[in-house]
Amino acid sequence: MLTYLGLQPHSGSGPSRPPEIGRPINILAYCVHEGFASSRSEGDELQAVKDWTCIRADGTSEPIKDKGRLSWTEACQYQYGPAVVATNTAPDDPWDTVRCVNG
């Protein structure tokens, strides 16, 4: 699962090494950084990347979207630094859809 990859966020100190094409996102780390308690996929089966949400301590959720308060590019930049963006690399594979690439 993407949330258990154990990847570290970008520290912000010094230049960051740009990620290789297709680096994964640590969704749990991003959600916790944004003040949420956890992350999960919505529904019985993960159908698409849009099914990922950040979960508050009270159980309510907020989806991660292309744009908005929680976004895939923000998640990439939190983890790898400001020079990256999110991209849809495998639209038919919800487990491997959004990756971080050099912007």
Rank of each mutant, 00 (worst) to 15 (best):
C31N: 07
C31T: 04
V32F: 02
H33I: 00
H33A: 15
H33T: 03
H33S: 14
E34D: 04
E34M: 15
E34F: 00
G35D: 05
F36D: 03
F36W: 05
F36P: 01
A37E: 12
A37G: 04
A37K: 12
A37M: 05
A37N: 04
S38R: 03
S39T: 09
R40V: 03
R40Q: 13
R40E: 14
R40N: 11
R40L: 09
S41E: 11
S41R: 10
E42P: 01
E42R: 11
G43L: 04
G43F: 05
G43V: 10
D44I: 07
D44V: 05
D44G: 08
E45A: 14
L46A: 05
L46M: 11
Q47R: 14
Q47D: 09
Q47A: 13
A48K: 11
A48Q: 11
V49F: 11
V49H: 13
K50L: 07
K50V: 10
D51F: 00
D51Y: 01
W52H: 15
W52D: 12
T53F: 06
T53H: 12
T53Q: 11
C54F: 07
C54W: 05
C54P: 12
I55K: 13
I55V: 15
R56D: 10
R56Y: 15
R56T: 04
A57Q: 15
D58P: 09
D58Y: 06
G59Q: 09
G59K: 10
T60L: 13
